[in-house]
Amino acid sequence: MARALINVPQKAKRGEIIEIKTLMSHPMETGFRPGMDGQLIPRDIIEKFVCTYNGEVVFSAQLYPAITANPFISFTTIATDSGTLVFSWTDNKGDTQVQTASIQVE
């Protein structure tokens, strides 16, 4: 189950810089930790985060095992037009989880 907390203001003024916070539920297992049996627990991390705004990529990030479990990423973007922001988190096995948020720009 994809569980993410995202805050995008519902309304913004055109040209306003808005701050977006995202929190994604994920263990970010580093691949460096031994488990109960002494074997390394396989790596399971989000490697790529992308935010598109009405289809255009406005921000992205590449994450390594040093990023905390349940990764928190905050960034800014300019409120240009009303529409949809799509957030995607892709793990090292290629699985992608997607969440969307809409914004009304006046």
Binding site: A4, L5, N7, L23, F72
Partner: peptide, 8 residues
């Protein structure tokens, strides 16, 4: 609440 991982 938007930064608290417990809220997930």
């Amino acid at each position: 609440d938007l930064a608290n991982p417990g809220m997930l």
